[in-house]
């Protein structure tokens, strides 16, 4: 299935990537040829086949509800590109969205 420039732009928006025009052109071509390859799968009949979500089947282990030590705030915030006091700071955005 071919992918259009508009689709590439839509996907980039979803993935929060601001692609340049040149990138949109390049990715449209490259993703198109990868998808062409991938679309061969659709010819395969998988009716009734269970999907494998975990290669080694197992039940989810459950952790006992015991609180451990928290990372001290200073350590939690140490790598923040921008912070304000004990908070991470981000550019303002529409409230409550």
């Amino acid at each position: 299935m071919a992918i259009t420039r508009d689709e590439v732009k839509e996907i980039a928006e979803l993935a929060r990537l601001s692609l340049s025009d040149e990138e949109v052109t390049r990715f449209t071509g490259q993703l198109g040829s990868i998808l062409e390859h991938i679309d061969a799968l659709s010819a395969l009949d998988t009716t009734g086949i269970e999907p494998t979500t975990h290669a080694v089947p197992m039940d989810c282990p459950l952790r006992e509800d015991v609180a451990g030590a928290a990372l001290p705030a200073e350590r939690a915030l140490a790598a923040a590109p921008v912070r304000s006091g004990d908070f991470f700071e981000v550019p303002k955005f529409v409230s409550g969205s």
Binding site: A67, A73, F88
Partner: peptide, 27 residues
């Protein structure tokens, strides 16, 4: 009302100082 978080052992005290109830999973 659990003592630790849904997916890690970080504590869940309400009203604690900002960003003091985290661990690598929570962050």
């Amino acid at each position: 009302r659990t003592a630790s978080k849904m997916f890690s052992a970080a504590p869940t005290h309400f009203g604690a100082a900002p960003n003091s109830q985290t661990d690598p999973v929570v962050l």
